[in-house]
Design a protein around this nucleic acid. Structure first.
Length: 854
RNA sequence: GGGCGCGUAGCUCAGCGGGAGAGCACUCGGUUUACACCCGAGCGGUCGCAGGUUCGAACCCUGCCGCGCCCACCA
């Protein structure tokens, strides 16, 4: 039922509270229409944290992100209009379209989520419906009013970033600076002595020039300052002003000033009280200049004006291509046009200061901490925020204008002024204005609700680092301002998902991977596991289908381990065998479980998803499946150890499945319920130190390692001798007792298909394995001559490795400075390695000498 | 222009002062008491380059080269 992918949001938990029902709210991606792997990353990590917190007995829930719901609303309305054969939104205009959106919202039960509910996925959306619509609108109006009254919101005519494509103002952060090939044209204004040369990359703006500026200390132009020169084309007389802004070293040392179309020029214009004519309309078309260029697109005009000036002989230099940085609208990719217009702004300085303070004081911790520098750089140098948008969708600005110039900000519970001539501001708010209220508006604010009391501040925010400035900073500012407390204890910033070669996914490159297709092919668990496994804090991950396939293989492995366990009657409800009855393998795997459990907790507490996942992967596959399951097969054949083995296997698998559940919920749910008979692993207890059953037994672990070494060496011998794995070979094993491995003989023989040595045993091959407990000699009757060349090669390789080891150790130990200065345990370690290497060399050399000539 | 980060096996990445690792890919061999989405055994690296610190450097410092991201009002 909850086998759905999830949309962006954040999660919160309060460890001190009692339990209450777990809530996984998952908007279906086919409705939001905006699901991509970036969301999958958010959702996976959020869900991992939520599920684990839940299993730990915490009250944990999370809510979907809102901006996607907004986008979805707009797109659903557009689709409805298209279906009804209505003209598109551009044809009917902004005001009419917004009316339609509200109309649709009322019809659909007030929210996008109401619409989702009708899709019948059985999720209760009631809470979200409230928070996303009525609640949020009220919160937005409340905050706006409060900030307006506090003087933190003001309206001003400023030069803003204008997107001619959106026909709207956009904020600084929505502008991408891109290196662009343009042209730098130098031209002469005025004539004779009363002339200067200026350079520009945007020659069309000369129609709006109202001055030429030079540096006050520049002797070349001292005589001109205060005089006027004649502009080409318009014939206007414009002053030459002196301003520190000009760099006398750059170009000619003189700058044309277009106050209404360039941020620097705007400031110069203000200082010198220059006129500020706007020469372009909201689409970037030249207008109102009284020249023949009116009606031309800005880029068309650029060429036309340049050629006109060239014809007049005023172009003195051209540099093309001229590489420079040009601001582009991040939504539409169109070059931004700075434009003088009346907009609403937030005075961010006091808000940004408290947002910065919250992190500096440790009230909120950023993970990874390297991101804090970026955060501070941003928060400490933030410009005022343009919040009004001339867009199609959003919360409307709650300000009404009266017939006599009155300006009234209307609070959420107030009636707007009515009567002749009153009208509401036509603009809407930047989506990040409302998004920034998320941590408390979802909890019922501005009402003082029990939820707000209980869940604010939230525990942790999980999101991509690319959204640090857009969303995180806004939430921090609003949270500290409105609530007096930062909204989160922790902020975990994950990296972005790239393609298999580390390239950013983009539609134009065609390397976008659809998460739903991956889920279809490999299962949701496989994708989640892949994402968790690749999520190192702050670093991007490359995701390819091969990785997802590998994760799918892992879930299959879990399936097979459990199938084996069930077939053998493994049962976590059985009591673990008394300590003295446990085999080495039992002690070892229980000890490893305890270690892995502790490590997993530590890593997840620190948001180290990749390492935690990797640790569980290797424990499950390399240790449990490859070794314990194999070693326990002989234990299961022995009545003395059989019940204990079933208990240990069940116990370890139970704990493992519980720890894997947050990462791979579906497969673990199926396997865990089958193994334990429990109702659901979702509400099972997270393994704790007290619950893993056994302390680490280093001696047992060492004996298991020795047994593994013997087994591996025999396998190696067999492989290189070309002895098929399935062929049973008679063997005599000596030295096991001395090495403490007597109890392991059955496993050794079983796993290597070594039959007992009968009366007619005649060893045709033998070798010695050096274990920590002592040497073990393996003699084999291979019923024929061994491949001497292969054996020589095998031993030769071992010998070379041992000699290299010995030589390295010799070199270190022969250096008196090393033995004097290095810590004693390091020196002892090298001595031990040296001794082992020498013993290996002796042994191997003897073996080689004993081999018959090839 | 400033800041941050990264260059380790064919690919994607871990390791961040004392024996070069993982997954995938590749080679060879496999119908063992779960698993071919598997099992076993292998091959594969002057850890970007050059200096420095240290008894010891993939790891710390400096410089350089290459790459990525973020920020930036120089015509």
């Amino acid at each position: 039922m909850y086998r759905r992918w999830v949309d962006a949001g954040y999660f919160r938990a309060d460890p001190s509270s009692g339990k209450d029902p777990f809530c996984i709210v998952i908007p279906p991606p086919n409705v939001t229409g905006s699901l991509h792997l970036g969301h999958a990353m958010d959702h996976t990590l959020i869900d991992v944290l939520t599920r684990r917190a839940r299993m730990q007995g915490h009250d944990a829930l999370w809510l979907p992100g809102m901006d996607h719901a907004g986008i979805a609303t707009q797109s659903v309305v557009e689709r409805r209009m298209a279906a009804a054969g209505e003209p598109d939104r551009h044809a009917i205009g902004r005001a009419a379209f917004v009316e339609k959106v509200w109309e649709w919202k009322a019809e659909s039960g007030g929210s996008i989520l109401g619409q989702m509910e009708r899709l019948g996925d059985g999720v209760d959306w009631s809470r979200e419906r409230f928070t996303l619509d009525e609640g949020l609108s009220r919160a937005v109006a409340t905050v706006f009013k409060k900030m307006f009254d506090d003087g933190l919101i003001y309206r001003a005519e400023r030069l803003v970033n204008w997107s001619p494509a959106l026909r709207s103002a956009i904020s600084d952060i929505e502008v991408d600076h891109i290196e662009t090939e343009g042209e730098l044209v130098s031209m002469r204004y005025g004539d004779g002595d009363a002339s200067v040369v200026v350079a520009t990359t945007r020659i069309e703006t000369m129609l709006g020039d109202t001055a030429v500026a030079v540096h006050p200390g520049d002797a070349r132009y001292a005589a001109l300052v205060g005089t006027e020169i004649e502009m080409p084309i318009t014939g206007r007389m414009i002053p030459v002003v002196a301003d520190d802004y000009v760099d006398p070293e750059f170009g000619s040392g003189a700058v044309k000033i277009t106050p209404a179309h360039d941020p620097n020029d705007f400031e110069v214009g203000r200082r010198h009280d220059l006129p500020m004519p706007t020469i372009m309309d909201e689409t970037g078309t030249i207008t109102g200049t009284g020249t023949r260029f009116d009606g031309m697109d800005r880029f068309e005009a650029r060429t036309a004006i340049r050629e006109e000036l060239r014809a007049q002989g005023r172009i003195v230099a051209e540099k093309r291509p001229y590489l420079h940085s040009v601001g582009h609208c991040s939504r539409t990719g169109v070059p931004v046009e700075p434009r003088l217009s009346l907009q609403w702004f937030v005075h961010v300085e006091p808000l940004a200061r408290s947002a910065g303070e919250a992190v500096r004081s440790g009230e909120t911790v950023l993970h990874p901490k390297e991101q804090a520098k970026r955060y501070f750089d941003w928060v400490d140098n933030m410009h005022d925020w343009t919040i009004s948008r001339q867009l199609w969708w959003g919360h409307r600005i709650p300000v009404w204008y009266g017939p006599d110039g009155e300006v009234v900000c209307v609070g959420p519970d107030e009636e707007p002024p009515s009567g002749e001539g009153w009208r509401q501001d036509p603009d809407v708010l930047d989506t990040w204005f409302s998004s920034g209220l998320w941590p408390f508006s979802t909890l019922g604010w501005p009402d003082e609700t029990p939820d707000l009391e209980r869940y604010y501040p939230n525990s942790v925010l999980v999101t991509g680092y690319d959204i640090l400035f857009f969303w995180v900073v806004r939430m921090m500012m609003f949270g500290t301002y409105v609530m007096g407390k930062a909204p989160f204890r922790d902020v975990y910033l994950h990296g972005l998902i790239r393609d298999e070669h580390g390239k950013k996914m983009s539609k134009s490159k065609g390397n976008v991977i659809d998460p739903l297709a991956l889920i279809e092919d490999y299962g949701a668990d496989a994708l989640r596991f892949t994402i968790a496994r690749g999520s190192n804090p702050g670093t991007d991950m490359s995701l390819s289908e091969e990785w997802v396939a590998g994760s799918r293989n892992f879930t299959t492995k879990l399936w097979n381990i459990t199938r084996f366990a069930l077939a053998k009657g493994a049962d976590p409800a059985l009591p673990l065998p008394a300590a003295e009855l446990r085999t080495d393998a039992d002690r070892w795997i229980l000890g490893r479980l305890a270690e892995v459990r502790a490590q997993t907790d530590e890593l997840l507490d620190g948001y180290q998803f990749a390492k935690a996942t990797e640790g569980l992967y290797h424990f499950a596959w390399d240790e449990l499946a490859d070794w314990y399951v194999e070693l326990c097969k002989t234990q299961l054949d022995d009545p003395a150890t059989e019940p204990g083995t079933r208990a240990v296997l069940g116990h370890v698998l139970d704990a493992l499945l519980r720890m894997l559940h947050p990462i791979a919920p579906f497969v673990t749910e199926a396997l865990w319920t089958a193994l334990t008979g429990g109702e659901t692993v979702v509400t099972a207890a997270w393994p704790t130190a007290g619950g893993t059953g056994a302390p680490v037994d280093a001696a047992a672990a060492a004996r298991v390692a020795d047994a593994q070494k013997v087994i591996t060496e025999v396998r190696r011998f067999r492989t290189e001798q070309g002895l098929p794995d399935r062929k049973a070979v008679a063997a005599r094993l000596t030295g096991l007792d001395a090495a403490g491995l007597a109890a392991h003989e059955r496993s050794l023989r079983f796993l290597n298909r070594l039959d007992p040595a009968g009366d007619d045993f005649a060893a045709t091959a033998s070798f010695e394995v050096a274990t920590a407990g002592g040497p073990v000699t393996v003699e084999l009757d291979t019923s024929g001559a061994i491949d001497v060349a292969a054996e020589r090669a095998r031993l030769g390789k071992d010998l070379a490795a041992a000699e290299k080891e010995r030589d390295q150790a010799d070199r270190k130990l022969g250096n008196p400075k090393f033995t004097e200065k290095a810590p004693a345990e390091v020196v002892d370690g090298i001595r031990a390695r040296h001794a082992t290497a020498v013993a290996d060399i002796d042994r191997i050399t003897a073996r080689l000498a004993a081999l018959p000539e090839a």
